[in-house]
Amino acid sequence: MNLFRAEEQARLFHDWDQDMEWTLQPLQWWATTFATPMFRNRGRSDFITWMSGEKGASAMHELRSRLSH
């Protein structure tokens, strides 16, 4: 789960896997993914309760949907 200066560097990375090519995305896409509720709510005083409840399940579903391929 790394950042690269540009697409050509990522494709030269020793861990490059063509089957995971879809994860090669612009910074903005990953910034938006890591701005979904699962990440925004870590500062809550009841984060584990929130994560374990309905809203947390919804947040995980949203994240998984975005990462489904």
Binding site: M1, N2, L24
Partner: peptide, 26 residues
């Protein structure tokens, strides 16, 4: 690589071609 962020804003991306990639599941 340098990135600056403040809440909702992305203030700086240098170079502006930065990409992310992973071979393992998030």
């Amino acid at each position: 690589l340098t990135i600056e962020m403040k809440d909702e804003e992305i203030l700086l991306v240098d170079p502006d071609t930065i990409v992310g990639y992973t071979r393992s599941p998030v």
